[in-house]
Design a protein around this nucleic acid. Structure first.
Lengths: 234, 234
DNA sequence: AAGTGGTCTAGACCACTTC
DNA sequence: AAGTGGTCTAGACCACTTT
């Protein structure tokens, strides 16, 4: 829609890269050359190049020029949130337990007690995941009401930590379902299921939360995407 | 090291956001205000804001101002490549087969024959994954030598498609291991294993390749990361 | 020495939002 | 009408790379 100069030029240059006119390791025309060619200022050309650089198509080299770099497709973007659109969540259990096994390892035995929340995601009337959340227990805090209201993790910790200083490690693996989980999802005990684990770390590298999602066969795969987009479309 | 003005100001503003001085939904001081405050030009302030916007900490609103946005940690970055450092790859089989089952679905029955390559990744003397690759067969092309030499997918297709116009869909799920796979990885037939599938699409949305990785228990989890980085460190 | 990208300035006009 | 971000210009000086 907009006839912005920098955008137009970026589109033209991108096309030249995608079409193969400029191949990998080639050096693009210089900023000054293009500024003159398109009768515009150098700043505008820089803005066009900044777009392509952001997209990973070129890489600037001081004193040399912009070098064409075709992407290698080894980095993927994965979307994963607690709330999936159209799904319902059922809460089954909220208890205070002593951490053991992977929970103790994840939270590094920092606290004697953790709040454990167990819930399932219901899709088409069937439980497709079994989610467990473990949060260090703090004496004197009202537990049940709080935990049940917060579904998204960042909110959960908003009052304890500045949310922006947290980060999450996500793991996907398989594991044998324990009795409770198997029953909720309708499988035999010991059935191998996909498990998504999340470790929530605070800014000072402390693990302040741990979640485990047992994924049923009906849930579908975990999906990630990679590659080069044009106009927001792959 | 560098005492660039725009970087310094970006650091100061970031600190103010992380410390909570500016909370979510707050409006940052205007470009003109900050330009005067720091005795610099508006363009330089814009550059500082551009950094924070790129990091996802603020969002510009035309006519209003820059609005603080604390990240929600639902997007993860996943690294996945054929070559893992320190691992060896053994090739077991290269055949030309008629696609059926998931292979036929993935490649949409576009070709009568596909080249199937089966290999395993060896770690500490043990097969930890079983990888299968399916590529549409083109009559008259030298198959075996080519396929065995190319391990990374982008290279594999470099001569057929401009690599930059490709993208990859990655799926993680579980599935029962067939006989051949189970034998190679040392499990019983039918054992549930984690499976990573990749669909390689060309620019015109055609699926031009399909890979399946059966992941053994010793391989470790698929890992992704999310969160806010400062100075390249989480 | 010449050319490149990297930073920075001091203006200008426009589109959008709020009062 | 006033303030905001969005675009754009025509210069300037610097650091780096190549010749």
């Amino acid at each position: 829609m907009p006839d912005y100069i920098y955008k137009k030029i970026a589109d033209l240059l991108r096309k030249d890269i995608l079409s193969g006119k400029y191949g990998s390791e080639d050096i693009m025309p210089s900023e000054n050359t293009l500024a003159e060619e398109y009768s515009t200022s150098r700043v505008t050309i820089r803005k066009s190049f900044a777009i392509l650089a952001e997209e990973g198509l070129i890489k600037p080299r001081h004193g040399k020029g912009y070098i064409v770099q075709h992407p290698s497709h080894t980095t993927f973007e994965l979307e994963f949130s607690d709330l999936e659109t159209g799904d319902a969540r059922h809460y089954h259990k909220i208890t205070i337990v002593e951490p053991d096994g992977d929970v103790a390892v994840a939270l590094k035995d920092r606290t004697k007690y953790v709040v454990m929340t167990r819930s399932t995601i219901i899709r088409n009337g069937k439980a497709v995941t079994c989610d467990e959340k473990y949060i260090p227990y703090r004496r004197g805090e009202p537990v049940v009401e709080k935990e049940i209201n917060y579904v998204e993790f960042p909110d959960m910790f908003a009052e304890r930590f500045p949310p922006v200083s947290m980060w999450v490690r996500l793991e996907v693996a398989t594991s044998a379902a324990p009795r409770d989980v198997a029953r909720l999802l309708g499988y035999a005990e010991g059935q191998t299921l996909m498990v998504v684990r999340r470790y929530i770390y605070s800014g000072n590298a402390e693990c302040v939360g741990y979640t485990k999602r047992w994924v049923g066969m009906d849930y579908g795969p975990i999906v990630a995407k990679s590659g080069y987009m044009v106009n927001g479309r792959l």
